[in-house]
Design a binder for these strands. Structure first.
Lengths: 229, 229
DNA sequence: TGAAAACTTAACTGGCAAGTAAAGAAATCC
DNA sequence: GGATTTCTTTACTTGCCAGTTAAGTTTTCA
């Protein structure tokens, strides 16, 4: 079954449990407010064991943050088959579903709240989060530009615009009001509108693409109703 | 000279000094990390005096946050005389200059970092910050729509788009990287592009308005050079 | 089965920080 | 100028929490 000897496997399991517990506790109360006893209890581990795995509170915090960061690396794929508008719509929902996940919002709040004390972490996340995301969007948009379906000079600005149009509003709101998680319908409202404005400003065939968008939105809301619990 | 007796005046002065000191200290290290001795020293006041003005750390924090909030109320005016594009440009720079101010960024980080512990404060700021700002933009855009210069169905979405196009990118970056304050030139890049896209998507006379925007951008960068120190 | 490794329990140290107490000094007002 | 209020100094109490120690228990592996 297990490829590793039990000793090492246990060690890895515990380390993972500790890191998960650390994320939870730090995210709830911030770095200074977090309590190492609480981390130990949450991880189901005694405090001396905790300190055997991580030499200090700060070391645990850094390890947890960089570990979380590395998990974000392999998130976004972008298949491209059913046309640009459908691709953009799929992007948009993927990004929304990721960026608005409660655990990632907590993490973002933690980073933002601690960034003055740990500036490296802010930069580290900027690189693998927003920057990487942006590069993915840019690459795709560049491809569509070369194919003659979009028109722009500066791919970075185009990508920033897409992001800002689609997710700036719901994400900002979610950051400030953790209890008011936006519903799928609210997200859809921002997202559909954002795509519409983006296509209007950047598409080389606005009429065609906007019609396609309208069609996809109708499809999507049908699917939503079907998938509702 | 002073309309109040000195006793009361002193009291008010000290309270203000304490609140300012509290803002600085809390913003630097967060709620849990902040030290009441540091607040007292920063305010030039002894600790017992501090506790005579505010009964506890939490009371001081709340008073400071709500006080700062109330200061934001009377910020934005919007004169309208020299045409829509010029108005939008002035809005944009006003918002940028406000939203990217280091002290307000610190405050935003503090709110976001503490919002899970103090949810009321998140809501309170959402109401007087973003919501109020948004309403101002909406009112203006509505006026332009009635005058036939803009076209849209949903004023809130249009306002959110303007905001997202103009300030989402530099503000997010500034939140995550306090040391990398964007330069005027970088802000101008996002801002001019955002206005361009907004006009392209929402103006009823895109060609005219975009030409006007180009003219204004040229003017503005001339002024910038003149005003450089 | 028995030794080694790793974990648990429980108590402890040391330091920091919130909040308080008491006595004296300074400003304010009449 | 003297009484009152308010602030300062200094020192203290109290409680929390990061990090440790030591003795005993469980798990793993050979």
């Amino acid at each position: 079954m297990s490829p590793l000897p039990k000793r090492q496997q246990n060690k890895l399991d515990r380390e993972r449990r500790i890191l998960n517990a650390a994320l939870k506790v730090f995210a709830e109360t911030g770095y200074s407010g977090a309590n190492m006893d609480a981390v130990a209890i949450e991880a189901g581990v005694s405090k001396p064991t905790l300190y055997q795995y991580f030499q200090s509170k700060e070391a645990l915090f850094s390890a947890m943050m960089l570990g979380e960061r590395d998990q974000m690396l392999d998130v976004f794929e972008h298949p491209s088959a059913r046309g640009m508008v459908a691709d953009l719509m799929e992007f948009a929902w993927d990004y929304a579903d990721t960026v608005l996940r409660p655990d990632l919002l907590s993490l973002a709040r933690l980073i933002i709240g601690e960034v003055q004390r740990f500036p490296e972490i802010g930069r580290a996340y900027q690189e693998v989060g927003p920057d990487r995301l942006l590069r993915g969007i840019m690459d795709y948009l560049e491809g569509q530009r070369r194919a003659g379906r979009l028109a722009f000079d500066d791919a970075e600005l185009a990508a920033q615009d897409l992001w800002g149009l689609i997710l700036s509003a719901p994400r900002t709101q979610a950051l400030y009001m953790p209890d008011r998680t936006p519903t799928r319908a609210e997200i859809a409202r921002y997202l559909n509108n954002g795509l519409r404005v983006f296509l209007k400003a950047y598409s080389t065939q606005p009429e065609t693409d906007l019609a396609e968008l309208v069609r996809l939105i109708a499809d999507h809301s049908l699917n939503q109703v079907q998938h509702d619990d």
